[in-house]
């Protein structure tokens, strides 16, 4: 990793944010017309090139070698991560209807180790690149923060529409949405008169962490553990909260290697008495 890329590594709170919410947004800086040129090139494709989208639009290669992208992916997957062969250009044209909430398919041979759902680790991430501004009526990607920790029941999701705490990814041109592979997400309806492109990639972990692959500061451990126990991502039933907290800490420890957080008893209740309600 170059010193430039090291400067873009995530910090403890950003990694905790990813574990809690399941997503992270990167905005690599490029020249003024870079993303509009990519958009124009995508518009000019006669058919969907599938996995060969980078051959059809070579400028896409530059995005994934940008230090801010390398830094974020190294932080989450280790510095020896790889880009999977599978990628897909989503063309969301005016009139496109909403997808159902879903977790992406596990039955793709490009997932090298063919793993199942991984609610306690980051083995692979989806990276969604948007070459144009995405407004709310242009079919933005919707996601449920924190849902990557749970395995969805697709039959039940078919009867769920808006979630109270859903995130609608209205983003600036050139933004990359990095998602835990198992997050519940959906493309939404495009009611505008504009085509919305999103090019999706898959990145994979190749080795287990021996040490944190991000800018780690062990003096923050107690505060981070507190965040993993208390921060809300989206409203859940109480029966899932303890499972959620356990999976968050286990995920952190799988990422951190030797710098694992230790669960130690500490008195969280001492302090001022509650005051009478006025």
């Amino acid at each position: 990793m170059t010193s430039s890329e090291t400067g873009y590594l995530l910090n403890d709170d950003q990694v905790a944010d990813f574990i809690i919410n399941g997503y992270h947004i990167v905005k690599p800086s490029f020249s003024k017309n870079f993303h509009s040129d990519v958009y124009t090139a995508l518009e000019g494709l006669p058919t969907n090139p599938g996995d060969a989208v980078n051959d059809a639009v070579p400028a896409l290669d530059q995005i994934y070698t940008h230090p801010s992208v390398v830094g974020a992916l190294s932080s989450l997957l280790g510095s020896d991560y790889t880009m999977a062969e599978h990628r897909h250009c989503h063309r969301n044209h005016p009139g496109t209807r909403s997808q159902m909430w879903h977790q992406d398919n596990l039955n793709i041979p490009m997932l090298e180790d063919g793993h199942g759902r991984v609610p306690d680790h980051v083995r692979s991430v989806l990276v969604m690149y948007y070459p144009q501004n995405v407004e709310a009526n242009m079919g933005p990607t919707a996601l449920i923060p924190g849902s990557h920790l749970f395995t969805s029941a697709p039959d039940r999701n078919a009867s769920q529409g808006n979630f109270r705490d859903q995130i609608i990814a209205t983003v600036d041109a050139g933004s990359l949405l990095i998602l835990h592979y198992d997050i519940w997400h959906a493309g939404t309806a495009n009611t505008s008169d504009k085509v919305r492109y999103m090019v999706k990639y898959l990145f994979e972990r190749k080795s287990e962490s021996e040490d944190p692959s991000w800018n780690h500061d062990s003096s923050q451990d107690t505060r981070i553990l507190d965040r993993l126990e208390k921060d809300e991502a989206a409203a859940l039933q109480r029966s899932l909260v303890s499972k959620r907290n356990y999976l968050r800490t286990k995920m952190w420890n799988n990422l951190a290697g030797s710098a694992r957080l230790e669960y130690e008893y500490r008195d969280k209740w001492a302090g001022a008495w509650p005051q009478p309600v006025k």
């Binding site: 808006n162 979630f163 109270r164 959906a186």
Partner: peptide, 23 residues
């Protein structure tokens, strides 16, 4: 208890339950 999600099924031909990103 607080509502977490909703889906409205209207009895109108052709309608589907969609996530409304503008809601």
């Amino acid at each position: 208890s607080p509502a977490i999600s909703q889906a409205l099924h209207e009895p109108i031909e052709g309608t589907i339950v969609e996530i409304d990103p503008t809601a």
